[in-house]
């Protein structure tokens, strides 16, 4: 939360003209990195993110290997040119290290780790351009990458954030909203039973706002999930189409 906060709500609409429960435009493409076992490219608002999955492969270094199940490693990073303003330094920051950890934990939940004892699955999330909500967009992309790698999961996870601007709750905060919002809460969901796999929050929310915020995320999930499934199907359909007509 910064001072000199600009007006984020004008005529009961958000700065970019969205309603409070409206997502930014989202497009997902699967299979963008040839070398990876699975990959996905997501454009979500002005976010541009690539996620790729390698594995399962032999776990390295050896002492990290778990003979009973697969281990997951995750790297989340932002490009030096991802911001509108300054030139970012490459290399891990405390922020990116934390985000890498919570993303890893999301996938440890949904991937059938016992299927691949002694192996390692690597998740890479590269934020080429950032516009608020990069970790949520990164998880949504990584989930498609994991599915396109054919790694069995019990559900296709999606993530989105909800925040508070003054007394209003707003879904899927963009960069300006994220910078000046009164509260921000990214959430990752396994949609089948509505299990929450990632939850972070800062700022302030009442108990009523918390319930309403989670409900907003859960109902937005249908649209996000559909985009994810469509991206996975599109990978096949585009080749099929060559032979139609």
């Amino acid at each position: 939360m910064k001072s000199n906060k600009p007006e984020l709500i004008v005529n009961n609409k958000r700065l970019d003209g969205r309603n409070f429960d409206e997502l930014r435009p989202l497009s997902i493409k699967a299979g963008v990195i040839d070398n990876a076992s699975g990959s996905a490219y997501v454009e979500w608002g002005n976010n541009k993110i690539i996620a790729a999955v390698y594995g399962p492969k032999e776990a390295m270094p050896k002492h990290m290997m778990d003979p009973s199940k697969a281990i997951i490693k995750c790297r989340y990073a932002m490009s030096p040119f991802s911001n509108l303003s300054e030139h970012g330094r490459s290399g891990p920051s405390r922020r990116s290290t934390e985000i890498s950890k919570v993303i890893k934990e999301v996938f440890e939940n949904v991937v059938f780790l016992n299927e691949f004892p002694g192996s390692e699955i690597d998740i890479f999330v590269e934020v080429l351009q950032g516009d608020g909500g990069t970790r949520a967009a990164g998880i949504t992309a990584a989930s498609v990458a994991m599915a396109s790698a054919g790694i069995p999961m019990r559900d296709l996870v999606y993530a989105v954030s909800v925040g508070r601007i003054d007394d209003k709750l707003a879904l899927d905060l963009n960069m300006i909203e994220d910078n000046y919002s009164d509260s921000d809460m990214p959430i990752a969901v396994a949609p089948r039973d509505g299990e929450i796999l990632l939850l972070q929050m800062d700022g302030g929310l009442s108990r009523e706002q918390l319930s309403r915020g989670i409900s907003m995320v859960l109902s937005a999930g249908k649209d996000i999930s559909k985009k994810q499934i469509d991206a996975l199907k599109e990978n096949y359909d585009s080749i099929s189409k060559k032979y139609e007509s």
Binding site: N35, N83, H87, L128
Partner: peptide, 26 residues
């Protein structure tokens, strides 16, 4: 021009090689 936040950008595909250059001016 694939990355709007950068002052300049270009993606180059050469066979299966894929690279992305971004320019920031500070």
């Amino acid at each position: 021009g694939t990355m709007g936040n950068a002052e300049g950008s270009a993606q180059v595909e050469l066979g299966r090689t894929k690279v992305l250059a971004g320019v920031k001016i500070a």
